[in-house]
Design a protein around this nucleic acid. Sequence first.
DNA 1: ATATTAGATTGAATGTGGTTCAAATTTATT
DNA 2: AATAAATTTGAACCACATTCAATCTAATAT
Lengths: 233, 233
Amino acid sequence: MGAQERVQKEKLILDTAIKLFTEKGFHGTKMDEVAKGANISKGLTYFYYKNKEDLYMAVTKKAFDHLKDIFRDIYRSKNKNGMEMLVDLISKYMDFSQEQRMYYEAILNFMGLMNQYNDKELRSQMDPLILESVHFNKLLDIHHDCGKIGIQIVSLGIKDGSIRPELQPEITFYTLWSMLIGYERLNGPINYEMKEIKIHVENWKPGFIKMMQDLLRGTIRPSRSPGVQGSLF
Amino acid sequence: MGAQERVQKEKLILDTAIKLFTEKGFHGTKMDEVAKGANISKGLTYFYYKNKEDLYMAVTKKAFDHLKDIFRDIYRSKNKNGMEMLVDLISKYMDFSQEQRMYYEAILNFMGLMNQYNDKELRSQMDPLILESVHFNKLLDIHHDCGKIGIQIVSLGIKDGSIRPELQPEITFYTLWSMLIGYERLNGPINYEMKEIKIHVENWKPGFIKMMQDLLRGTIRPSRSPGVQGSLF
DNA sequence: ATATTAGATTGAATGTGGTTCAAATTTATT
DNA sequence: AATAAATTTGAACCACATTCAATCTAATAT
């Protein structure tokens, strides 16, 4: 069996896992089923992946690759100013998070792991197998890459005048990303049973996006007092 | 054993669970240890809680109660305008998410469950035991309550002129909440290894808060074109 | 007081499902 | 053809969550 065949078998397992995780979620998917779905013995899955978490990390890697592709494609798109690129990115990101639920859930789960990973106290709680995982370490890089691309786009927008010049690209982009992450977490619940407090499906998303645009657009005058108010801290 | 003693034993188990979840996380905590920590037999924990998830839901309930207290206390505070209340809320929320890591993680986990719960397709993947859980259903209410309080505060701010009047309270508050949720997810990683792209610990949080304030403050002129740009959708 | 009953508690047994591993098989190398 | 290396298997293992019949305790009724 050559190297390419080995890769193929790895991919076979991965594809089966993706299918099952999508249908039944992480806990609903049994390693037995993955093996059966890929027509191999249970033990063999452990030859290709260290454990179930490692397999999930491989899925997460694929998920974040997709997301990075979205970032990259938009960054490369011609005839758009920075603001248009950002608006495009926001829209595509939202689509991704709503259409690729399982992938996006995996990405959010990874962000939780990153949080643990970057905290001395919490890191010790983590499964050591994950820390060694190739996939996990690649994911750290991909996350970082997405950040860099986003920041680049904001910088472009400032240069071409489509985004207000007093904004800092790094903070601005991560603020936007924060909004997107939180939006998805809140969106389902709000759309569902918030009629009582008058948020309608039609209102929340466009209203949310408008607020993002307000933040970026030249329609904002700079604060009279730059920096944070003394009252805050 | 009277009713109050029963409640006390329930609390004993809960407190042990909180201690262990905080130290070792959800998966790192064994039901064996919870029982041992509470000086009862393993089986008895299942008399008071349906299963481990149910116990975790009870912990989550306590976590969200704390958060709701923060909301309520700020809403009741005297001699503050709406903007000041919001700034206070943002600050307290951030403190909570950073100081009560385990509690906040539980809340985020619950929000993920809510997302599943509000999606027909995904709901079937959920553990039926959770859906019946008293704690889960109370949590849905508490989440909703927090939303209502937040919206009230924004409304106050608009009335007293500290927040720009063209904002919709519901959308504005949920947008802020989105930002807070996302901020926490991104904060650890960014603070940790983002020196390369020039976000420093000192910059990100105040910069982030400044952007929130820009959004609310009278320093923002209304968009020339109200609503979302046609280019977006 | 004693019997009765409901509630609380135990701990051993069960079951699920992830993980390991020695042995077998296949493929590559000499 | 012999040897070595890489793959593959499936049964065994083990950690835990969960269940349950039996036991104990305390409240209530007789």
